[in-house]
Nucleic acid binder design. Structure first.
Length: 462
RNA sequence: UCCGGUGUGGCGCAAUGGUAGCGCAUGCGGCUGUUAACCGCAGUGUUACAGGUUCGAGUCCUGUCACCGGAGCCA
């Protein structure tokens, strides 16, 4: 059995008969007759220093291959390092090479590379410190999301990826078809989807919310956590065509309960990462964003500010800040407005709720004032919207009326309306963009660098 | 999609319209319980692509493509 670097570095006592397998990060030769080889196996940020005596039988054959990027297996003894810089080192007794890497051609050098360059070599970038750390934190967050909901009795629900329902207002869908696009069947000048695989037009899901509601109104509390697709031509550091979304949906939750859960959720995740990803988080704090630890602790330690949309508009109107987009009741809040509120006014996460009915989708519950709906957005400083949610309209008549106003065909949503027809209940939910969460937690500036293989317009490589 | 910026050795960058350089990496040599090692020497270029202006274009102009930042759409 091999030993993982992470376990070795945590040892309390010296160990003999250790076996390490991993990739060479750097190699430094000493004319004292030995070499220092740093091995990383991805189990943690740090590598382990291997000391290889040139008199070793296996050294002569291995030496030409001990370059950055090569994969090796090393047997030896874990001993206290006599030099500064590390507590432990591995005194090698046998070195074997799995795969060498031509030093003249291997693209990763033992120095910092730009993220733009690393995106072009997405198959090798996980071997860098930053991407190793990002993916370990991403993994911990995914685990932690399940832990949060499972501990509270939520049921993990798998909603379909191929679907006919476009969660209105969520964005453009990718079409899924097996039709021959060079000669599709036509009827009355229109493409006849009756001949398509599913017998009707289908696409990749933009949200599992509507399906989530179905199961919340049976199992009470559910959550989804899966890939989501948007065919928007968005070219920003916060948008992907394929991203992962977490969507809890709870029966008997009103908007206030929804906001409580969202706040508890975010704080739980941040606290968990601070406690369980210390080494990686210290790396981000040192190399990526000098204030990220402070920012996360600040979020964990303080109550989120909660304000009505109307009050947010009032604050923006009376502020002396110069905005590119003017502010008036009924308008959508722009990025600059959201940033101003979370970064300048409150300097912490802000939940804005009770939005005008006109600018929100049909399924959000209408307030008694008939002007606003029970919608809420959680805004984080420097990132913007991370969560969007609402209490859902549970009154059949009101839902019908709102669908007509937004020119939607109730026939297409017959099953959704049935939920209000039979045993309707107040219920709420929200969606959290997983990559935006990873972005915020790691301090990484571009969303393309917190997902293993980013999908953006014109990019589906690897 | 819109606005702005940038495309130069493997990587990061420089070069008033006048002989394309520097750092890192790489190779060789030296030195050292080294650790983003250090010292010396060496190799490395269709200056994104296609046109144009000019005696002369990496530099100016036009178009295309790519990437980055911001905006919109949103999570």
């Amino acid at each position: 059995m091999r030993d993982k670097v992470k376990d070795l570095l945590q040892q309390e006592e010296e160990q003999s008969g250790v076996l390490v397998k991993g990739w060479v990060r750097t190699r430094r030769d000493s004319k004292g007759g030995f070499s220092f080889i740093e091995i990383n196996d991805g189990s943690c940020l740090a590598g382990i220093q291997v000391v290889a005596d040139h008199k070793l039988e296996s050294y002569a054959s291995a030496s030409p291959h001990l370059h950055t990027g090569s994969c090796v297996a090393i047997k030896g003894n874990l001993v206290v390092s006599p030099a500064k810089g590390q507590k432990w080192e591995l005194q090698a007794s046998e070195i074997s090479v799995y795969g060498s890497a031509d030093a003249e051609k291997y693209p990763l050098q033992k120095k910092q590379h730009s993220f733009e360059f690393l995106r072009e070599i997405a198959h090798l970038r996980p071997r860098t410190n930053t991407f190793g750390a990002v993916m370990r934190v991403r993994n911990r967050l995914a685990y932690s999301i399940h832990k949060f909901f499972q501990d509270r009795g939520f049921v993990y629900l798998h909603t379909p990826i191929i679907t006919t329902s476009d969660c209105e207002g969520a964005g453009e869908m990718f079409q899924v078809t097996t039709l021959d696009l060079s000669k599709p069947p036509v009827n009355d000048g229109k493409i006849d989807y009756g001949h398509d695989f599913f017998g009707e037009r289908t696409g990749l899901t933009v949200s599992g919310q509507l399906e989530g509601e179905i199961y919340a109104l049976a199992l009470s509390d559910i959550y989804t956590f899966g890939p989501t697709f948007r065919a928007e031509n968005s070219n920003t550091s916060r948008h992907l065509a394929e991203f992962w979304m977490v969507e809890p949906e709870m029966a008997f939750y009103e908007l206030e309960d929804d906001m409580d859960l969202a706040e508890e959720f975010v704080k739980f995740l941040f606290r968990d990462v601070l406690e369980n990803c210390q080494e990686d988080m210290e790396f981000f704090n040192k190399r990526i964003n000098k204030t990220i630890l402070e920012t996360l602790r600040n979020v964990v330690d303080h109550e989120f500010e909660r304000i009505h949309y109307s009050d947010a508009i009032h604050l923006l109107e009376k502020s002396s800040e110069k905005f590119i987009y003017s502010v008036e009741w009924g308008c959508n809040l722009q990025s600059e407005h959201e940033r101003y509120l979370s970064e300048k006014v409150f300097k912490k996460p802000v939940i804005i709720y009770n939005y005008p009915e006109e600018i929100k989708p049909f399924y959000m519950k209408l307030n008694e004032d008939h002007e606003t709906v029970r919608a809420m957005d959680v805004l984080l400083p420097n990132l913007g919207e991370i969560i969007g949610g609402s209490q859902r309209e549970d009154d059949l008549d009101v839902l019908h009326k709102r669908m007509r106003e937004k020119e939607l065909d109730p026939e297409e949503y017959w099953w959704y309306l049935d939920l209000r027809r039979y045993g309707s209940a107040p219920h709420s939910g929200f969606g959290l963009g997983f990559e935006r969460l990873v972005q915020f937690v790691t301090g990484m500036e571009n969303i393309r660098d917190v997902i293993p293989f980013p999908r953006t317009p014109k990019h589906a490589k690897f």
